[in-house]
Design a protein around this nucleic acid. Structure first.
Lengths: 133, 133
DNA sequence: TAATAACCTATTGACATAGTAGGTAATTGG
DNA sequence: CCAATTACCTACTATGTCAATAGGTTATTA
């Protein structure tokens, strides 16, 4: 399941993309428009900054802004910054302990196939495909 | 994420399918072969029984057995019996509270499309595709 | 009739989720 | 130049889910 962090992050990115020409956007505005607590969004945007997806400037006239042009973001990379893993099963997560059954596991190929499907879907979709403007 | 319940349930179903000709299979045997605690499997199999996927018989000579032929099960229906929801976001779960933003939500179509992809993938796969025998 | 096996209720430790609270540091418009 | 604005930081917490474990009772038959 995609958590609120992933979903809200996507909405923040959409919001910033739609106001990309307006320079730095205060988080207050995004929170207002999206109907999400500003305090909670702070946590989320912090991770987006750490992931080099957006940049922030403090002080009056400051706010957040996309680092690149909106068309250069895929949904997949946004979600992967926020979710511990986009993978369907713990066995395939990047931080997974090696499983002794993996070589003989009859279900592993199924999960791997689904993982590829998921990855291709979300990395194939671009942020601009979700914009209204 | 698919939980252990879903993954173990699938392995139980595979195990029962591979021993389908042997009549009722004691859970002890399945637990032994799969390397999963029998106690935990009891919880899982109980739900499979409630979902009419397998049937159980008590007493000596008893055990569990698939209700239908192995080729008549899809992976999707097995997983949906065990997981609260196969859906990617809470908004689309069957027990979800109606969201006031749904009509204007810019991300909802994305989640819906991914949900369909997931559904089609897992319902398209059959249990027999995972068998060795 | 004793062994076997399903079936039942309850409990628990660990962890993740979805926030809240209250502050400090940086920057600039007036 | 300073007060308003805004990002940035650390910490805390309630709630719920997950992944089991524990200890029984009931049903069936070799």
């Amino acid at each position: 399941m995609i958590s609120t962090k992933g979903r809200y992050a996507l909405r923040v990115m959409i919001d910033l993309a739609e106001h990309h020409q307006d320079g730095y956007i205060p988080l207050k505005d995004v929170a207002m428009r999206q109907g999400i607590s500003k305090k909670y969004l702070e946590i989320i945007v912090k991770e987006l900054v750490a992931g080099k997806l957006v940049s922030g400037v403090s002080g009056k006239g400051g706010g957040y802004k996309l680092c690149r042009d909106p068309e250069d973001y895929s949904i997949g990379e946004i979600l992967e910054k926020m979710e511990p893993s986009l993978t369907a099963v713990a066995c395939l997560a990047s931080d997974a302990a090696p499983c002794p059954r993996s070589s003989s596991c009859q279900t592993l190929p199924l999960w791997a196939e689904y993982d590829k499907l998921t990855h291709d879907f979300f990395y194939g979709k671009k942020l601009t495909e979700l914009l209204i403007v």
